[in-house]
């Protein structure tokens, strides 16, 4: 995820100012994700509809005077299914989907890091995973210098600790 543009430690780069750097102009000029992507979108939507419909039918659709648990979900799933078909059918007409770039790896890594940190919180308290998470996001994903991110992370977590644990008496799982 940090393959491109290692220059990123400069402060406060404004989005407009970043345009010349590699990726930025791409979305404006390059073709957007095309037909196939939108086909897949439609298919996934429809599949979700079908899956939900199967569950809904299983729940039972009841009758009008005694609507069942599955009545409404069945209606909505059918809607989802049909809408998905239309999206797929009109796939070529959409220009609003974006291709997933290789930078999306950063998103995946960020999300996974977040999940791991959150899963650790009930086990070891929120402080250490939080500091690790902050440092990781700031320095690995955001390419901030460690000498900035480490003390800053510790400070932030301390502040969060003070606010939530002491100030608000929220029972967050914690070590300290």
């Amino acid at each position: 995820m940090m393959d491109a543009a290692e220059d990123k430690s400069a402060p406060a780069a404004v989005d407009t100012g970043r345009a010349p750097e590699g990726q930025e102009p791409a979305p404006e000029t390059a073709p957007r994700a095309g037909r196939v992507t939108n086909l897949v979108c439609g298919a996934v939507t429809s599949l979700a509809g079908v899956g939900a419909l199967a569950v809904a039918m299983d729940l039972g659709t009841g009758s009008l005077s005694q609507p069942g648990a599955g009545t409404w979900p069945a209606i909505v799933s059918l809607m989802l299914f049909v809408i998905g078909l239309f999206i797929a059918a009109r796939a070529a007409h959409f220009t609003d989907a974006e291709p997933i770039t290789k930078d999306a790896v950063g998103v995946a890594v960020g999300a996974i890091a977040l999940t791991v940190a959150v899963q650790l919180m009930p086990l070891v308290g929120f402080e250490l995973p939080s500091v690790a998470l902050l440092v990781f996001w700031m320095s690995v994903l955001g390419r901030e210098k460690l000498r900035l991110s480490v003390p800053l992370s510790v400070l932030v977590v301390a502040a969060v600790h003070l606010t939530f644990v002491h100030g608000l008496a929220v029972p967050v799982p914690r070590l300290f």
């Binding site: 990123k8 406060a12 404004v14 989005d15 100012g17 970043r18 998103v107 960020g110």
Partner: peptide, 15 residues
Amino acid sequence: ILYNLERRRNGGSIP
């Protein structure tokens, strides 16, 4: 936030 992570809009938008 995730979306911006990919876009590397690290500066936020405060023009």
